[in-house]
Write a protein that binds this DNA or RNA. Sequence first.
DNA 1: GTAACTTTGTGTTTTAAAACATAAAAGGTA
DNA 2: TACCTTTTATGTTTTAAAACACAAAGTTAC
Lengths: 247, 247
Amino acid sequence: MRPGVESAGRKSQIDMIKKALEKVMSEDMSEIWTVLNNEEKRRIIDSFVIHNFKKNQMIYAEGEEPEYLWCLLQGKVKKFKDGVGGRVQILRLIRSVQYFGYRAYFANERYNSSAAAFEPSTVGTLPMTLVKDMINNNRKLAWFFIHELSRNLGGSDTKIVNLTQKHIRGRLAEALIVLSDHYGFEDDNMTLKIYMAREDLANLSNMTTSNAIRTLSGFVAEKLITVDGRRIRILDEPQLRKISKYG
Amino acid sequence: MRPGVESAGRKSQIDMIKKALEKVMSEDMSEIWTVLNNEEKRRIIDSFVIHNFKKNQMIYAEGEEPEYLWCLLQGKVKKFKDGVGGRVQILRLIRSVQYFGYRAYFANERYNSSAAAFEPSTVGTLPMTLVKDMINNNRKLAWFFIHELSRNLGGSDTKIVNLTQKHIRGRLAEALIVLSDHYGFEDDNMTLKIYMAREDLANLSNMTTSNAIRTLSGFVAEKLITVDGRRIRILDEPQLRKISKYG
DNA sequence: GTAACTTTGTGTTTTAAAACATAAAAGGTA
DNA sequence: TACCTTTTATGTTTTAAAACACAAAGTTAC
């Protein structure tokens, strides 16, 4: 897949790459880069390609051949899977700086899920062949991926039980908690930093859009949250956690 | 956790270990061993401990500290998670020779699920500290785990969609297909090689035991399968696959 | 071999969530 | 501005699956 490079003029494109690389290299969260030696860093800088995606634009689709390691630099990305009868399940949310799209390559499979930008996003790519070489020469990088994969697998297994066994209210409360843990709050420490459509909220918590809307209204009536369009404020997190646990 | 060693007399215990090691070392499915050099093989032989588990005996439980790589030599093992209201979800089935129990260690977490023997089973353990050392000295071993974790993660994501979106009949049909793919058939090429309680079948396909029984009876009435106690024969696999896809 | 317990089987009732049906807001566009 | 599309909201109906209830087979233990 050759992703949509929003060509934005040569100068500003170069600036963007520079800024993005700086961000990637300095971000302490992305421990991945701290384990590279200088030669590896040069190879990365030479191969790193920046792409911009518009709101709701697909990054890759289930069934395609995985070729790149994707690194979200700016924005928010969802990984999702189309199921039966037009229903969609959001599997994982990506924030900056996080890596994604490598699992299928490692498993020797085609993409098992799709990725799309939630909001305007900047993504860097690195050919997986290069990543593979780097892993072979750098055992810390191997451990980085072993660790990431292991954490994600645990998360997926937990999600299976949450989505199949909890009731609607529990699932939505859980989704709100996950969103707050993952993307955090605005400066007021209450407003979720992600503004998603009710439909996405529904696809995240395995319910229909109407039920997401209805249940959300219920939470408002119980004064657990307030809602202003897509702006959600968490008022009573402990109670939400309780409902998420089972209620 | 110190697992239950069914001490079976010194002589036969030694025989068992010898046989088990032979099996592990020769099994071509377990590519993991082919990548080791002689020194590594000696370290393994010295540390490898055999354990026997009775039918339904727990191997480890959610929340415990992971210390060992488990290798199923003989028998069948289920990995499962206790959810809300006494419900159980079977997450993965292990056959010989397969490895399990390493994810939590790699993720630096406690066990996220439990493991129990479906039937009398023989399991070998290796301290994860040793496995870690081996990975550091052997990049092919690192790739083995990256590959396994990646495949499992893809499977878990698929399972999320299957279990949340398919209807009861589809989920049970899917479970039967998975069982046949995973454990295979008896010599008649029809009878599933695994004999599980209806309750386990239900826990595998996210439904109540009564619904598993009822739906299974439905399949019998439609001549898709026959049932004789826990012995299930697949008569019409194509149709089962169709139902599993959506029916 | 009989009693106690567990597993399987089936019918009936209840319920949680989907499906359907509108309508009002909100957002985009000509 | 007016028009069209999408999103949000809420009420009503339908339905798939759980819950409940009981009986018959099978197992296990004594």
